[in-house]
Amino acid sequence: MRKILVLGGTQYFGKKLVEKLIANGDDVTIATRGTKTDPFGEKVKRLVIDREQKETLAKAFDGKEWDLVYDQSCFSPIEAKDTSEVLNERVGRYIFTSTQAVYEFGTLHKEENFNAFTFPIEYKGRREYPGYEGYKEAKRASEAVFHQLGKFEVVSSRFPIVVSEDDYTGRLKFHVDKIISGQTIGIPAPDMRYSFIDAEEAADFLLKIGQTDYSGPINPGSSGDISLRELIEKIELLAGKTAIIEETGHSDNMSPYALPGSWSIDTSLAVGLGYKFVDLHKLLDALINHYITAHGKITE
């Protein structure tokens, strides 16, 4: 039985990962701030930590060791450094949930397009990284710390936009609801392109790569990408409604996918290693139809 530590694991696909680890028969410990309830009951052990307070990590992890760590909650290089130092010689393998945002804006990025092994590290806390640009820099620097310190074997899983029926962000649902309701959506740059992954497949990927000896960065997700224009056209077709789009928008109608540039990844490395992901259009069609049905039930 493997002993596994999950930093986070009480929200979205992190929660799905913990459920899969339990089903796999692993001995699972989750470490969180302890402010959220979870559905795991007595199936997991629990530790209370604050990623911004190194001493809480040292206290919680004292005298303990694990075969594998999944990090779902690191958002700064200081947190990465503190965790690496505290867990040094307590774990041999570390899987960091990163993001396609480590790449510059652009399309179909391959893993070598961002080199975490040479990226210059400036140590700052999570509160010093505001907005999308801050998020990008925080994840870049965190990856760099994990790979450059070399405390353990590291996988950086660079996820694209995660979607599912139970997506707590409601970002895809936002577009479906606006179009069905005849409300305006602000999309300044409709030709920006993005990649996606199903939340269940994201959790399954983390489970399976944790059963291998792979190390380094990797891009999981459905192959290819789609523009906002194509996504809107897809919703229009499936909903039988015409979208109202304006190039400028306000906070209440701006598309949550209206980012400053394209962000998409090339997933050929993961696919070549045998990982399987649903076709991008099948994924989006199924979710759009689910949200259309859900919208109809709410308005009945």
Rank of each mutant, 00 (worst) to 15 (best):
G9W: 00
L17T: 03
V18L: 13
D26F: 14
D27F: 08
D27G: 04
K36F: 06
K36W: 03
P39M: 07
K45W: 11
R46T: 08
D50W: 03
K54S: 13
T56P: 09
A60M: 12
E65H: 13
Q72N: 06
S73C: 14
S76A: 05
P77Q: 01
D82Q: 01
D82Y: 00
S84N: 07
Y94L: 02
Y94P: 02
V102Y: 04
F105G: 07
N113E: 14
N115F: 13
T118L: 11
Y129E: 01
P130C: 12
Y135Q: 00
K136E: 09
A138E: 03
E143A: 08
H147G: 08
H147Y: 15
F152D: 01
S157H: 11
R158Q: 02
V162G: 04
V162N: 02
S164I: 07
D167Y: 04
G170L: 13
K173E: 06
H175N: 09
I187Y: 05
Y194R: 01
I197K: 03
E200L: 12
E200F: 12
A202Y: 02
F205D: 03
I209E: 07
D213F: 14
S215L: 12
G216V: 00
G221D: 06
L237K: 02
A239D: 04
G240V: 13
I244H: 09
E246M: 08
E247Q: 09
H250L: 14
S251W: 09
D252W: 14
D252V: 14
Y257F: 15
A258T: 06
S262D: 09
D266V: 06
L273H: 04
G274W: 13
K276Q: 13
F277I: 02
L280D: 01
L280A: 05
H281C: 08
K282P: 06
L284T: 05
D285C: 10
A286G: 09
I298E: 02
I298Y: 05
T299A: 14
E300V: 15
